[in-house]
């Protein structure tokens, strides 16, 4: 698509009103940030975000909308080839679990409580745990 070059290159737009809360831009402050659990253990990264209308409607257009979930999942292939994984393949971490947004996003719960870490737990229990010495710390 060719964008009209006349579009306000030198226009100075009016400043937006000061906001009553902290401003977060999705790409600048959230996407691809590391997620740390309550013990500051890395859990995963934020691959996408989910927004809903304030009434819970899945279509947020046409009224107030809020961020409801942080999403993580198998996005490497789609980032290279385009598109995104089906919504059902993305693991959801509710915003209510977030306790701080800094250079990393910090959660208020343990990573083991999240579905996002099930692959790691499965490999630990079914693969690493079956290797002799794999169930205890190095001596």
């Amino acid at each position: 698509m060719t964008i009209a070059r006349k579009t306000h290159d030198r226009t100075t737009y009016e400043k937006d009103a000061p906001q009553p809360g902290r401003v977060l831009d999705a790409r600048l402050h959230l996407l691809d940030r590391q997620l740390l659990d309550v013990d500051d253990v890395p859990v995963t990264t934020i691959d996408d975000l989910e927004i809903h209308a304030t009434g819970g409607d899945a279509d947020p257009v046409g009224g107030p909308a809020v961020l409801t979930n942080l999403l993580t999942g198998p996005v490497l292939g789609t980032r290279i080839l385009g598109g995104r994984p089906p919504s059902s393949r993305l693991e959801r971490i509710a915003w209510s679990h977030v306790r701080a947004v800094d250079s990393a996003v910090k959660l208020g719960i343990h990573g083991s409580q999240l579905d996002a870490t099930w692959v790691e737990r499965w490999v630990r229990d079914h693969v690493i745990g079956r290797i002799p010495g794999g169930r205890h710390d190095p001596e």
Partner: peptide
């Protein structure tokens, strides 16, 4: 909804 406010779009 937790430790932080809900982010409004």
């Amino acid at each position: 909804v937790g430790p932080l406010a809900t982010p409004r779009v």
